[in-house]
């Protein structure tokens, strides 16, 4: 069971969190094109290695966290609060 170092709650089991995934920048809805918008919707980096992604600590502080994780090993390098940037 992977551990995520929650900036508010400390290291916690991954089952306490909901995986959200990579969140790319949201295009301006007024001017966006279908190509651009659907890239935002569907195309996410899928590297075998370090990735930046979002997790939600649903069974803890209920904060959204920006997490750096290696998808090859599941090693978590950092986790900070998405809104405040608070790190542990």
């Amino acid at each position: 069971m992977m551990l995520l170092p929650c900036p508010w709650c400390g290291p916690r089991n991954a089952t306490e969190f909901r995986y959200v995934g990579e969140a790319g920048p949201r295009p301006d809805p007024a001017s966006t094109t279908p190509e651009e918008w659907r890239r935002y919707l569907f195309m996410h980096a899928n590297p075998c290695g370090p990735v930046k992604e979002t997790w939600y600590h649903r069974a803890g502080c209920r904060r959204y966290l920006a997490v750096e994780r290696d998808t090859a090993t599941n090693e978590v390098r950092s986790a900070v609060d998405s809104a405040t940037g608070v790190a542990r």
């Binding site: 909901r18 959200v20 949201r26 979002t54 939600y56 649903r58 959204y64 998405s82 809104a83 405040t84």
Partner: peptide, 13 residues
């Protein structure tokens, strides 16, 4: 609930 929090925390803190 998680959806609301998501927009508040990640898009409009």
């Amino acid at each position: 609930w998680e959806w609301v929090e998501n927009w508040l925390q990640t898009a409009h803190p």
